[in-house]
Write a protein that binds this DNA or RNA. Structure first.
Length: 113
RNA sequence: AGAGUCGCCUGGAUCACCGCGUUAUGUUUACAUACCGAGGAAAGUCCGGACUCCGCAGAGCAAAGUGGUGGGUAACGCCCACCCGGGGAAACCCGCGGGAACAGUGCCACAGAAAAUAGACCGCUCAUUAGCAAUAAUGGGUAAGGGUGAAACGGUGGUGUAAGAGACCACCAGCAUUUAUGGCGACAUAGAUGGCUAGGCAAACCCCACUUGGAGCAAGACCAGAUUGAUAGCGCUUGAGAACUGCUCGUUCGAGCUAUCGGGUAGGUUGCUUGAUUCUGCGAGCAAUUGCAGAACUAGAUGGAUGGUGAUCCAAUCGAAAGAUGGACAGGAUCCGGCUUAUAGGGCGACUCUUCUU
């Protein structure tokens, strides 16, 4: 699970990350990453799980699994990073997909910088 | 043993490691330790309350809701018991169950002759005319028979008649009035009298009785911060506008209000969980429920905690086995009481009928 400091909670931060951040997509996930945000609290992660994914129980389950999967990957990111994961549809396991996305987004960020 | 009816409970378990949220303690501002951490429906948001705020809520009209009787409850549209009607062999189940002459209006598809102050399609029958006759035509009488329909204006038997008919009689059903008995009551049972007979729909308008102030935890309180413009209209005690309130009256507040354009905020703390609470025992009551005593504390998040991995057991499915697959419906958001809907599997109890044995 994510420690409290590594959670994205403000509506504004969500809007800024999804609008200005680097974006990579896979069949069931979308990853937004925004670097050099100015606050060095450590990488922050937020989740968007749409109602189209499933009922309340399913959405909570998906959110928990994703939070758990992203936690060991956080050290790969800069301190001033904000990440938003958007879920498009239901899947049994997101492990491989998420690792692939992180690899791709890091390459993208390297090119930009 | 079989078939069935009703009610209730349960809703995978244990361990290890790594994580998350509240609270407490310790160092101290980030960690450590300890405790606790979703449901029977947390759901739908359909009723009823608690709680909070509003200029403490007046009268009339309108509107909405409820509708057998008695009881329970903080309250209810809920629950219990009983009554009535319907279904079943029974346990038991179902019912939005006031009023249909004593107010009035309306509707009753299709079929059928006719759907409500009746009605003559077929049939039955009488008279007259025509005809040798069968029969036909015309004018009457007739609701016993036929067929239609969810429903056809009492039923059975007789007297009677040209044929028939509550026209008359007996019994039965049902209606109205009334008496007695039982019951708190809805009502039931028994009798008397009357006239021979009265369709359904009030989930159609309507009538009767009772109930209802409005908004809701994004309620409300505190802290911090931002915008604090432009144009037009109305008004400043000769009253704009606002609240009760949907309308009228009435009461109260009252110096700003309304429309368009432009701009800004929605951050934190609190409300926030000890309550019509839960469990146990002894009483009251057929029951719903309730009185007294003792014990217990059982989520409180706010981009929103309860998760991940592994092992064993349990249930299920597949399979000869080894083994493999893999866990119903579903996630708190101020809190309670109900209702409704979803729900794999497992368990317990009470009762009814049939068969067998004693």
């Amino acid at each position: 699970m994510l420690p409290a400091a590594n959670r994205l909670r403000n509506g504004k931060d969500f809007a800024r990350t999804t609008r200005n951040g680097a974006r990579v997509t896979s069949p069931s996930l979308v990853l937004y990453v925004l670097t050099r945000t100015g606050n060095s609290t450590g990488p922050q992660v937020g989740l968007i799980v749409n109602k189209s994914v499933g009922g309340s129980v399913v959405r909570h389950r998906v959110a928990r699994q994703l939070r758990h999967l992203i936690a060991p990957q956080l050290h790969k990111f800069d301190q001033e990073t904000q990440i938003v994961i958007r879920t498009l549809r239901m899947k049994d396991s997101y492990t491989a997909e998420l690792e692939d996305l992180i690899e791709r987004v890091q390459k993208k960020l390297l090119v930009v910088s």
